[in-house]
């Protein structure tokens, strides 16, 4: 088996204290090998987002350990975490989180510029990625001039900007209608085929269906962990 890109041992995140305490993530063990696409499902409030944030170094665990490419995240300084996020992790959020005042291409090159690439390199890479997500002709549009699906594709392009080790997506289609969902679905499927390590939190079984593996969470812990043998049924249907 290949080396794990992401690994967690006894990962725990609690909110509050005493009787009001919530175990958002409760002693989770996880390992995601390179190139695997993993879908996490479960009822609302079971701790999916929290888990994703812990895995991406956006939040610190109350207990337990996380490794990304063999490096401990839970003990890292804020600065190192920031560097790690821009070099090794790509985030995609439910509500896109694009910068309203930057155009599509500027949003995509944001991460590359932060990582210290030269403006020209960053622009070239952003152009390539926008082309990849099918938005080359919208490069100079502001997010407000894009549809929801288009915004999310810009966000995916941004997440890929620095060739991350892992892409973490939190309900990427949660705010989209079914046509836009299909666009994102196709994009994720391409990523999977290319061997991009992917962790997707979703309520949408179509998204889950394209994954190599699916985890179901309940009350902060894993209730089910299954490897899906079949390729997504949607694949080829609209390709």
């Amino acid at each position: 088996m290949t080396e794990s890109v992401l690994r967690a041992r006894g990962l725990t995140r609690r909110y509050g204290r005493g009787s009001g305490m919530v175990r958002a993530v409760d002693e989770v063990d996880l390992s995601v090998p390179a190139g695997e696409s993993l879908a996490i499902m479960g009822p609302s409030g079971c701790g999916k987002s929290t888990l994703l944030h812990l895995l991406g170094g956006l939040q610190r665990p109350t207990a337990g350990r996380v490794w990304l490419a063999g490096r401990r995240l839970d003990t890292m300084s804020e600065r190192s975490l920031a560097r790690l996020r821009r070099d090794s992790v790509g985030f995609v959020f439910q509500s896109f989180h694009l910068m309203d005042e930057l155009t599509a291409v500027e949003n995509v090159e944001l991460a590359a510029l932060l990582a210290g690439r030269s403006p020209r390199q960053a622009r070239r890479r952003a152009g390539y990625l926008l082309d990849r997500v099918g938005l080359a002709d919208r490069a100079d549009h502001l997010p407000s001039a894009l549809s929801g699906g288009q915004r999310q594709r810009v966000a995916v392009a941004r997440a890929l900007s620095n060739e991350p080790l892992v892409v973490l997506a939190d309900e990427p289609t949660g705010n989209l209608d079914s046509a836009a969902t299909l666009e994102i679905l196709r994009l994720f499927e391409d990523l999977r085929t290319e061997g991009q390590t992917l962790v997707v939190v979703t309520h949408d079984s179509r998204i889950a269906a394209i994954a190599d593996r699916m985890i179901t969470m309940r009350d902060g812990a894993f209730a089910d962990d299954s490897r899906l043998a079949v390729t997504a049924p949607v694949h080829g249907g609209w390709r």
Partner: peptide, 16 residues
Amino acid sequence: RRRVGLLKAVGAGPAM
């Protein structure tokens, strides 16, 4: 606040 969160999510450190 939103912009700060966003910058941090794409990897901006506290100094940036």
